[in-house]
Write a protein that binds this DNA or RNA. Structure first.
Length: 548
RNA sequence: GGUGGGUUCGUAUAACGGUUAGUACUCAAGAUUUUCAUUCUUGCAAUAGGGGUUCGAUUCCCCUACCCACUACCA
């Protein structure tokens, strides 16, 4: 019978979710949605030692920002579900709250002879391990050593009963069989075989805190939650045989999920997996959202750095997966359509921060002027400017004026939108808008030295001032509404060419006065945006500052 | 050390066993533009090495090298 597709993302709340983790969640989500199935969140917090407050909320918020919305495990308010309901039948979704479930499964395995009680302390084992390593030997807790260690297989029954009673630090270990070849299939890597003699008797359950370890909790919960595919990081591949054997021991082979192991995200330079340090070192975020740890150390996030979530998700999707053709730009829906595990590459992908920026640039261009204006407004406010549309002016109890006022730093929203439409092709982030276009809001305070030396020469200045006079006259003639780029452009060019003046030199002279540098929009754009008076005042200021 | 996985331009990747080994990012050059940016065009640049199998190997097999992961009462 065909089972409904159910996949899960099962993070451990030990810190902020790494972008590699986001990619794993994304692939799970894409897979589930394509199959019309469920994407479930489960919190694997069985290690009380490493629990970090706030990490769980961070993970959920990060996924939400990315548009990776769980069907199950997290409610509408972004809280992990603790009480079962129709929509969340397997609650609680936090393993620490599922504590009572696991012990009986662990005991069941002991009963069936697949597991046993072990009484060695971590210290004892550490000592043995150190001794053997000193002799260049490898300690491995399995068939070769378990007979001489303290456990229910080596000790008399009475003593086992006594130790179980008296001590509270024993564990239940899986009895890894000797010399068996486990044959496994991975959705990405194909067939994999491992001989069990190289594996160890993993701890499944700890009496000390009455919690399972990852392996047991994972298998039990995936079974109980009817997971059909497990899509997880490559670091789990070595424990896949254990997981296969566990399903077998429980007699759950029939419904065992299929597995897919994703390669890791690697550092942009050098070797090894991408870590927080690399971001600090190379200057890019490693986390989706900003994170401040207990020591007050801040890690930047893609959101706070100005990335659009769509761009971030698109970039992440293409890191280790491709559609088989040359397409690179995908909406979430398109990703859902196109995604397939078969096209996920096996090898690790070095993260390329430049490409991440390129994606953001592409998405910024796709945004409407209106939306970008909304995003730019707060930046302008930060620089002490006010921006109003008729509606919001009314709301604030301010009089709306349709003309920009450079003296007081007031700008109608329509003006800002016009600016945005002209500069958005030049930017990667909304935050770039200010660097690119501040001169359209405040007069230049200084002039780039190099450009002054190149263009502010008296013979050019003389001509530029004549052109300025022409523009002022033209503006007076046209009136406010007639003074536009379209009306000015032709006559302006004609005027300069008619006089046979050097276009580049004259224009850059003007640009220097208006912008403070020899870069920026076309003169006709700048002048008509600024308006006749602001234009005139900047020309005067330049002459006053730089001379003729 | 052991076990498992991996290896195509600098990076991400494409190529039913037959291609001048493609595309994108980056970089460089040129064109356009009143400057800058954009845009367009062009260029640079790869099958880790060695053996097989085959008429033919980036593709299949073996060996070596290198990289990664795992090797906890962590996930």
């Amino acid at each position: 019978m065909e089972r409904r597709t159910r996949v899960r993302f099962a993070p451990s709340p030990t810190g902020p979710l790494h972008m590699g983790g986001v990619r794993t969640a994304l692939y799970n989500y894409l897979y589930a949605k394509q199959k019309g199935g469920d994407f479930i969140i489960r919190i694997e917090d069985t290690d009380s030692q490493r629990f970090v407050p706030g990490a769980e909320a961070y993970i959920i918020e990060a996924l939400n920002w990315c548009g990776i919305i769980p069907d199950e495990g997290v409610d509408e308010n972004g809280k992990v579900v603790e009480v079962a309901s129709d929509k969340h039948p397997h609650a609680p979704y936090r393993q620490s709250q599922r504590k009572p479930i696991y012990r009986k499964y662990a005991e069941e395995l002991v009963q069936k002879g697949y597991a046993y009680y072990a009484f060695d302390t971590a210290e004892e084992l550490g000592k043995i391990r150190a001794e053997m390593e000193a002799n260049k030997q490898t300690f491995i807790y399995n068939y070769s050593t378990r007979g001489s260690l303290r456990n229910s297989l080596s000790l008399p029954a009475e003593e086992v009963a006594r130790l179980l009673e008296e001590r509270s630090d024993w564990t239940i270990r899986f009895k890894m069989p000797e010399d068996r070849t486990v044959k496994m299939d991975d959705l990405i890597r194909g067939h994999v075989e491992v001989n069990t003699s190289t594996l160890d008797d993993k701890v499944l359950w700890k009496r000390a805190d009455e919690l399972p370890t990852y392996h047991l909790a994972n298998i039990v919960d995936d079974h109980l939650m009817e997971i059909t595919e497990v899509i997880r990081g490559e670091e789990w591949l070595p424990s896949l045989p254990l997981h296969y054997l566990l399903y077998e021991a429980f007699g759950w082979q029939e419904t065992m999920p299929r597995f897919a192991h994703l390669s890791l995200l690697l550092k942009p330079d050098g070797k090894g997996k991408l870590s927080k340090r690399d971001g600090d070192r190379l200057g890019f975020p490693v986390f989706p959202l900003k994170w401040v740890n207990a020591e007050g150390e801040v890690s930047r996030g893609y959101r706070e750095d100005g990335y659009f979530p769509e761009a971030f998700v698109n970039m992440l999707a293409m890191l280790g997966w491709n559609p088989g053709d040359d397409r690179e730009l995908f909406t979430m829906d398109e990703l859902i359509q196109a995604f397939s595990l078969e096209r996920v590459v096996m090898h690790g992908a070095k993260f390329n921060p430049e490409k991440a920026k390129w994606y953001n640039k592409e998405y910024l261009r796709k945004k409407s002027d209106h939306e970008l204006t909304k995003l730019f407004k707060p930046v302008l406010k930060q620089h002490g400017l006010t921006v109003h549309c008729p509606k919001c002016a009314e709301k604030c109890g301010v009089e709306y004026r349709p003309e920009p006022d450079f003296a007081t730093g007031y700008f109608p929203k329509a003006y800002v939108q016009k600016v945005v439409s002209l500069i958005k092709e030049r930017a990667t982030f909304v935050a770039d808008f200010w660097d690119i276009a501040s001169y359209l809001f405040v007069a230049p305070k200084e002039y780039v030295e190099k450009d002054v030396a190149k263009f502010w020469k008296s013979e050019n200045v003389e001509l530029a001032l004549q052109v300025a006079e022409f523009i002022k006259d033209f503006a007076d003639k046209c009136g406010k509404d007639g003074f536009t780029k379209e009306t000015l452009e032709g006559p302006l060019e004609e005027y300069i060419r008619g006089n046979e003046w050097p276009m580049g030199k004259v224009m850059n002279c003007l640009r220097l006065a208006l912008v403070g540098a020899s870069s920026g929009l076309g003169i006709a754009d700048i002048v008509t945006l600024l308006g006749r008076d602001e234009f005139a005042s900047r020309i005067d200021a330049a002459v006053a500052n730089l001379g003729k």
